[in-house]
Design a protein around this nucleic acid. Structure first.
Lengths: 211, 211
DNA sequence: CCTACCGATCGGTAGG
DNA sequence: CCTACCGATCGGTAGG
């Protein structure tokens, strides 16, 4: 359990993590380009140039933050594909986990949604591929439910997936982690509204006796 | 119909408009801080310093673009409050107009949603007030429908408004103006799913004869 | 609208 | 991790 001499020391490891964490916060608050390496260093109590002992450059920070966010979504969601659940359970669970990732990483999520366009070619392409994958994932969830007969037959699967993704992704703009609502509460509320609709259901015919 | 000498000439007016328009495009593509005044000038075929004959500074550009976006939403939506419509019609119409504003001004909308945080105190406060007003507007639309008995009685009005706003706002990330879907198509699809739900309605009892 | 310039600040490096 | 520095670029201005 003792760490060897040639590995990065514990303090250096945590320093690098500190840098990523503070960078995530500053990028989310001020934006990537409006955050200078000296701003970042000052928050850590070191000089600007000292950062380069731990990281290779500014874009590595953005790239790492965005990739971590994508990985968190992947880890939370893709295992769902093989779990034995009804379509509604699967959708509810996906929304719940998706919202949880955002709610527990509001800063990272904000950077993810706002700054990914500033990545260089390679990580940029990776993000676009990732996004396509997530969209396909939700379309599959919906299509599965339509095939099982639990969702409306005429449903536009692409638009339905779009609607679900809108509802969970937009949470990064309004969710407040310390508040009364847990991510699960939000997911339950959204899912209930999305599945059953906002409208008072019109009974097929006037209510008769309760069975 | 002839313009007087003391008014800004037609070319100067259109120059200022050109600046706003190009700035909107560049800010949406690269972000506010990653767009330099020289980038902007180059797109217009002039020197960087020449911009300051037409505008007071970089932030004026952002402020103007954001304020115009807010005004467009206001003009499209707030007249709805006094129009004589059923709650569902009113909600549908609000979503349709909201989406239309975004769809017809994708660049401005992108700047609006991504860069408003970089405004200075005064315009920043105005945007926050605007956002609160829009949220209140949608909550009113929903509450109205609940009171009229057309939306579910137990509906969480705040969450429902949140869901509606998510669906329309997120469109700035995926809508493609040249595509097959008009904003009205999207609004109709979203509204139908939101009101009636994704789920196949379970009839209260097995289908009997029609009517 | 241009030329020429300002001070400030940027990301990053050398050498210790 | 610091000092001292690099060239590049920033938003903006003076004077024409």
């Amino acid at each position: 359990m003792e760490s060897g001499r040639t590995e990065p020391s514990r303090t250096e490891l945590s320093r690098r993590e500190q840098i990523y964490r503070v960078a995530g916060r500053l990028f989310s608050e001020r934006g990537y380009h409006a955050t200078s390496m000296r701003d970042l260093a000052a928050e850590l109590g070191i000089q600007g140039g000292s950062l380069y002992a731990h990281i290779s450059g500014k874009e590595e920070l953005l790239s790492e933050i965005v990739q971590r966010a994508a990985r968190q979504f992947d880890e939370a969601l893709f295992s769902l594909r093989t779990e034995d659940l009804t379509p509604q359970e699967r959708l509810r669970e996906a929304m719940s986990r998706h919202l949880t990732v955002i709610a527990e990483n509001m800063e990272t999520a904000t950077v993810f949604f706002h700054e990914w366009k500033h990545l260089s070619q390679e990580p940029l392409a990776a993000v676009i591929t990732w996004r396509d994958g997530i969209e396909a994932f939700y379309r599959e969830l919906i299509a599965e439910g339509v095939e099982a007969g639990v969702y409306r037959t005429g449903l536009n699967i692409k638009m339905a997936a779009n609607l679900v993704l809108s509802s969970v992704n937009w949470a990064y703009t309004w969710y407040r982690p310390g508040g009364q609502l847990s991510p699960q509460d939000v997911a339950a509320s959204f899912e209930q509204m999305l599945l059953s609709g906002l409208e008072q259901p019109v009974p097929a015919r006037p209510m008769q006796e309760e069975n």
